[in-house]
């Protein structure tokens, strides 16, 4: 069992030492000795936040904090799930097939560049929603179709407004994304950490 003597250290020193220790190697058991109540509480909290069961005993002014955790596999999974939950969710809503106002030709060029560059948001890009004229980017012949196809393959949810496709009579020309309704869009807005409107 790994043992850390963190006596004499002020908070958050003991927590940081514990952090280093459990990050260095995959431990099942760890023991940390601290000399004050505050450090005991903080170390217990930290261990619990990392999937350990924590307990502490006091002996002559010293606190012995014990951390135990079960199978590493389940821990890893819990960690991944937690990380997924903590990942920021960005929703991009595109309501036009031209970026900005002014010259249409330039607007289209900018839109292609915008859609292509969106991938730089990485995993935080969570939903890409097309409404109104934006749905025209998802139909046969659209210049960004290959890029959108790539995104979809990589797991990005692309939502396309059904009412809008119907209105433009493009329902059967759509080549990428799921047809969606306003309730889904509103719900996604509510869940997202950030909504970007184009």
């Amino acid at each position: 069992m790994k043992e850390i003597d963190a006596r004499g250290l002020a908070c958050p020193g003991p927590v940081l030492q514990t952090k280093v220790a459990i990050e260095e190697e995959s431990l099942r058991d760890i023991k940390i000795i601290v000399d004050n109540e505050a450090a005991k509480q903080n170390v217990c909290r930290f261990l619990e936040s990392k999937g350990f069961e924590a307990s502490a005993e006091e002996d002559r002014g010293n606190f012995y904090v014990m951390g135990k955790r079960g199978e590493d596999v389940s821990f890893q999974k819990a960690k991944e799930q937690k990380e997924e939950a903590e990942q920021k969710k960005i929703m991009v809503m595109v309501a036009t097939d031209r970026l900005g106002h002014g010259n249409d030709e330039l607007g289209l060029k900018l839109m292609i560049s915008f859609i292509t560059t969106l991938k730089e948001m990485g995993l935080e890009l969570w939903r890409l929603v097309f409404v109104n004229n934006g749905v025209k980017l998802t139909i046969e012949g659209s210049k960004v179709l290959p890029v959108l196809g790539e995104y979809e393959k990589e797991g990005l949810h692309i939502l396309v407004c059904g009412t809008c496709l119907t209105y433009f009579d493009l329902l059967d020309k759509k080549r990428v994304g799921e047809t969606t309704n306003m309730l889904d869009i509103v719900t996604a807005m509510q869940l997202a950490d950030k909504v970007i409107n184009i």
């Binding site: 002020a10 908070c11 958050p12 927590v15 109540e37 505050a38 509480q41 903080n42 170390v43 217990c44 909290r45 930290f46 936040s49 990392k50």
Partner: peptide, 12 residues
Amino acid sequence: YAGMGLVPAGAK
């Protein structure tokens, strides 16, 4: 962060 025990000694 408070839940992770990152509470400074001053707070206590």
